[in-house]
């Protein structure tokens, strides 16, 4: 389903490089979850000694990394499902201008989420907040992952805002768009 989207320009390429690094961390977290679950079950069955730290490590950090570190990479590669069926029936300019507004609002939303995570990060770090468990994991790490993921996602949304606005104003394609759902030979026929 997901293809690799070549960046349309230098700004996008720079962002894509950061996104790739985060996506690698996300993928590694996913692999780590798999190995930890298997190790946990094996330890429990074979040695009657389950890993006491697996539950919190996975829930508190690794799943958070899987989600937030993949957020922007997935957007860049058109992995976030969109309804792309009406899109191509809307004329070029209004479509891009509307998308510019949509991504502007999205930028604001992602920035607000990231900002709130930053506030929690600061407070948790200064108070040395930890969960009550055999290993008292600090909570600021989770907030850091949220803030970092949202920062890159915000930048990607801002980039899309400008890209769609420029495309709409110039009438050209200056930003990455998902491949159309129709196929080239019969592109004329849409859905009924």
């Amino acid at each position: 389903m997901m293809q690799s989207q070549p960046p349309a320009n230098g700004a996008s390429a720079l962002l894509a490089r950061i996104e790739s690094v985060l996506a690698l961390l996300s993928g590694l977290s996913l692999g780590a979850i798999m190995l930890i679950v298997v190790a946990d079950v094996a330890m429990r069955y074979v040695f009657a000694a389950p890993l006491s730290w697996s539950y919190n490590l996975i829930g508190l950090y690794l799943m958070v990394a899987v989600f937030f570190f993949a957020l922007s990479d997935t957007l860049h590669n058109h992995g976030h499902i969109a309804i792309d069926i009406f899109q191509h029936q809307i004329p070029h300019r209004p479509r891009h201008l509307a998308l510019a507004v949509g991504y502007l609002l999205s930028s604001g939303l992602m920035a607000l989420i990231g900002w709130q995570a930053w506030l929690r990060l600061k407070s948790a770090y200064l108070n040395d907040d930890r969960i009550a468990a055999v290993i008292p994991w600090p909570t600021w790490v989770a907030y850091f992952i949220v803030a970092a993921g949202c920062l890159v996602m915000t930048l990607r949304c801002v980039y899309r805002t400008f890209g769609h606005a420029a495309s709409g104003l110039t009438g050209r394609d200056l930003v990455e768009t998902p491949p159309p759902p129709e196929t080239e030979p019969q592109a004329g026929e849409g859905a009924e």
Partner: peptide, 9 residues
């Protein structure tokens, strides 16, 4: 791993 991470995300 990357595709699974993207789909999960």
């Amino acid at each position: 791993l990357r595709r699974a991470a993207q789909t999960s995300c």
